[in-house]
Amino acid sequence: MNRWFAATTAAALTGLSVIASPAAAAQNCGGPDEPAAIRFAFAQLPFEPLTGAKWDPTPVASNYDPCATLSTILVTVEGATGSSPVQALMFHHGEFVGTGTAKAHGFTSLDADASSDDTVVLTYKTPDESTVRYRWHDDRVVMLDPAPSAE
């Protein structure tokens, strides 16, 4: 009886540790973990065009989820200040699908509360303080609101 209890307890604990592991969760969805997703995206992006600076691999903000229909990781440049350009890296089930805008904007933030499984909401503190929703539609990201104005 004690062997059965020990074996059952060990199996239950093993099952719990696998479920609780972020790496295991990423594998279940097929997408990479966040650091690997950032590395893959950076391999496809040029340096920030205005400054020529490399992108910093430490996220400014993120709702990255390899299981989500659409999620994002906000990154800035190495050695950034508060007004440095921020770019939104977009992911569909953990696969990098491009950036939110062609040009990075300073003072960009993620509205995680307004975002959902298939929608990412970003606020751009441009002269017109725009909130832009991005949604996964069919096979691509669609910008639902007007693009942020130039700074």
Rank of each mutant, 00 (worst) to 15 (best):
V141T: 07
D117K: 06
I73Y: 00
A102G: 12
W55V: 01
T101H: 08
S115W: 00
V75F: 00
E48G: 07
A53N: 15
W55I: 02
I38F: 03
K54W: 06
P59Y: 02
K125G: 12
A147C: 10
T58S: 10
N28Q: 14
G30V: 08
F47E: 14
D65F: 01
A26C: 09
W136S: 05
A23G: 12
P46A: 09
T81S: 15
W136G: 05
A10W: 07
F5L: 14
D128A: 12
C67I: 03
A7D: 14
A25I: 08
F96E: 02
D113K: 13
P22W: 06
V142M: 07
A7R: 13
L74G: 00
A104I: 01
G79F: 12
D113M: 08
E78A: 13
A7L: 15
M1P: 15
T8V: 13
V75Q: 00
G52P: 04
D117Q: 09
A102I: 10
W4C: 11
P57E: 05
A61E: 10
T119V: 15
P85I: 11
V142E: 12
S71E: 02
K103G: 10
G100S: 03
E95N: 10
A36I: 07
A102C: 07
E78M: 11
K54N: 14
E129N: 15
D139V: 07
A80H: 11
A147V: 09
A23T: 11
P22N: 05
P32Y: 00
S84I: 04
A37T: 07
F96S: 02
H137F: 11
E95G: 06
S71M: 02
S83L: 11
G100C: 02
H93K: 12
V120I: 09
L16P: 06
A61H: 03
N2I: 12
L74K: 01
L50R: 14
L89T: 01
F42H: 13
R135D: 09
V60L: 07
F107N: 11
Y124K: 06
T58K: 08
T14R: 09
A43P: 02
T81M: 14
A43E: 08
A37C: 07
T14M: 13
A10C: 10
G31V: 00
E95P: 02
L74S: 02
E95C: 03
G82L: 02
S83A: 15
P22K: 04
A10T: 14
A7S: 14
S115A: 08
A150K: 14
P146T: 08
F40N: 11
L122E: 05
